[in-house]
Each structure stands twice: as structure tokens, then as C-alpha cells.
Simulated assay, not measured.
Amino acid sequence: MKKILALILTLTLVLLIGCTKIPDKTVPQGNQPGVTDETPTQRYTVKIAGLMGPTGMGMAHMFKSDDNLNDYDYEISSDPSELGPKVLKGELDMAAVPTNVAATIYNKSEGKIKVVALNTLSVLYILEQGEKINKITDLKGRTVYCSGQGATPEYILSYLCTANGLKVGKDVKFNFTYNNHADLAKFAVANKPYCCMLPEPNVTAVLAKNNKMRVALDLGRVWEETVKDDSKIVMGCVIVNTAFAEKNKEAVENFLKDYKSSVEKVNAQEIVDLSIIPSVEIAEKAIPRCNIVCITGENMKEKSMGFFKVLYEANPASVGGKLPDDEFFYN
């Protein structure tokens, strides 16, 4: 297939507002939970929404492919808050949303949605003008300019600093003057901060315009070095209307096959052009740091519950007031 270097990205990543080791970026071949090799007996039309940015990027190929097992009536959204209600009402069967949004919808709706796949790991990075920051403890004595105050990015960075012995507000300070990702990216391009935390694709946009900046820390890797379980920073997922899933199990299984294939092609940069991102160069360079995945079945709980616990401890409301139970995960 001809490589088409353009994809669903936006220079304002919507974050809950989820980077891990390379082996986690692709779904293992063979017997994967939730994915079977049976030939479908019926073709389904699935109403689905992708979210701009890395959370929706994995769907790009699927939306335009002629090789899908299902047909997809799709839409692209920049606002995750509008997708949950649509899935609950049945206006959409599935949607890509931030993981904490999924947990909140699940808890508040008493289980009317489920997560069928985790689709984005960490997209958060510390950028630096220099070579002094090589581990999280090197942030001691520094001010980190951040976006995402009172949301997942702040909770993640606070946890990683605290877990590694840094007292936030004393040993390391966060500056949220530019709380919007795009505004902070512009500030970084102008050589203003010594170091800052940004998500992809903003990271790539900054690096393309400011050669003094470098990626100092991959917070996904810092997480793996910090936690004592197998959890990851899990930023995005695909949810399904529970009633739809129960009545249309074959359609869900078909989707998992189609989506797995799409993710593999996106990561290989066989990307269908949806005319959303203005820069092909940024798209190409951002993909490896977007950590687009398709994790299904029992692996979803293993990879995400440690992450949800961190969010819950930081702010219970960020996951809907309580941790999601086992029924949250489609299996």
C-alpha cells in the first residue's frame, strides 16, 4: 500500500483534560483476548467517532479502508465531552475518548459503556534547552512550565516527582501560566522556558521550530521505572455502548480485528489522508512518540488499573468518584 503521510492529529491535544516500551506498541499476533479468527457471517454498520490527536489516530486507516469486516459510519471530534453522551444515547455505538473520561462515564452511568480497547499510552514529555535533565530527580530546583492543570498531565507529573522523592512546590515547581497546550508550545518555540512538559503532537511542533529544545524525559518510561506493577500511563481508549455490545458481539469482534490492523498500519506510517493535520513532516516525526496501541481483553485491566489509582488518589472526581470495577473492561 502506498504510504500517505498525513493523519488525525491536532496541535491541541485533548487530555482529560494514554509511552511505553516498544514491544507494547504493537498487538501480539496469535491468540489475543477479544480477537478471534472466525469468518464473520454478517456485515455490520458501526456508528463510531474518532477524537482528534493521538487518541483518534489509530482509526485513521480503518475509516478509509476497503478491507474492513464492518462498515463504519464515522465522525471526527475535537471535544471528548460531546462523545460520551452520544454513546450513552445510542447516537454512536463506539467512540475514542480519554481513559479518565471513560471511567467517569462508566461510573456515572452505572455501567452503560465499556472499554473495548486501550488505544493510546503516554504522550507526555519533558523538553529542555540544554543537557542537564536526564532523570526525573534532575528536576530538583527547577520550574517546569506545564499545561493541563487540574487534569491528568498535572496528576501524572506530580505523582512521578513525589514517588521519586521530590516535594512539589518546594523541590520542583510547576508553572501553569500557559495552561493550554498550544499556548505553551508557542512559549517554548520562543525560547522562553528552560524546561516544560508537553504532549505530542505539540512536542514535535516545538522541536521543528526550536533546535535548542530536546526531549529530556519520556514520562512513560519514567512511569515504568517508578511503579512496582505492570501498569502504564494509559491516555486513550475506545468505548462501546454496553447494550450494543451485548446485542452485537460479532460486530465488536470485527471492530477489534479492523482496529488492530489499522493501528499496525498507522504505526508503519501507512496513513490515510483525512486532511486534518497541516504538516506531513510533523505527522511523520510524531508517530513514534504517540504510542498508539490496541490492547484488549484481560491486558486492559493489568495495564490501566495502576494508572487509575494514581488519578483517583490525586482527585477522585477525575475518574467519576471511584475506581472502575472489572465490568468496565469488555472481554
Score class of each variant (00 low, 15 high):
135 K>Q: 15
284 E>I: 13
216 A>E: 00
270 E>G: 03
270 E>N: 07
42 Q>S: 12
256 L>V: 02
54 P>W: 03
165 G>P: 09
235 M>I: 14
183 D>T: 15
94 M>N: 03
216 A>N: 00
217 L>C: 03
81 S>L: 13
226 T>G: 06
190 A>H: 08
327 E>K: 15
196 C>D: 05
79 D>Y: 13
161 C>M: 08
298 E>R: 14
283 A>C: 13
290 C>A: 12
270 E>F: 10
233 I>L: 10
280 V>S: 14
139 L>I: 09
261 S>T: 15
228 K>S: 14
150 G>S: 12
173 K>W: 03
83 L>V: 11
131 E>W: 09
290 C>S: 13
92 L>P: 08
104 T>G: 03
227 V>H: 08
178 Y>Q: 09
10 T>Y: 01
101 V>Y: 10
105 I>F: 04
92 L>Q: 05
239 I>P: 02
267 N>G: 05
330 Y>C: 10
81 S>I: 06
239 I>T: 00
32 Q>V: 15
207 L>R: 00
216 A>I: 04
329 F>S: 07
324 P>N: 07
41 T>M: 03
138 D>R: 08
187 F>H: 14
160 L>S: 05
120 T>I: 10
246 E>D: 15
246 E>S: 14
148 G>I: 05
267 N>C: 07
139 L>V: 07
169 G>V: 11
186 K>D: 15
319 V>Y: 12
57 M>C: 12
39 T>M: 04
22 I>N: 10
82 E>W: 03
133 I>E: 01
267 N>F: 02
245 A>V: 11
239 I>H: 02
209 K>P: 01
170 K>R: 10
15 L>Y: 13
244 F>I: 01
116 V>G: 02
226 T>W: 04
155 Y>T: 09
22 I>W: 12
70 N>Q: 07
209 K>A: 15
281 E>D: 14
281 E>W: 02
145 Y>E: 00
107 N>A: 02
288 P>L: 02
40 P>R: 04
80 P>A: 01
267 N>A: 10
73 D>P: 05
139 L>H: 08
115 V>A: 06
176 F>Y: 15
92 L>I: 08
321 G>R: 01
185 A>G: 14
45 T>P: 01
266 V>F: 12
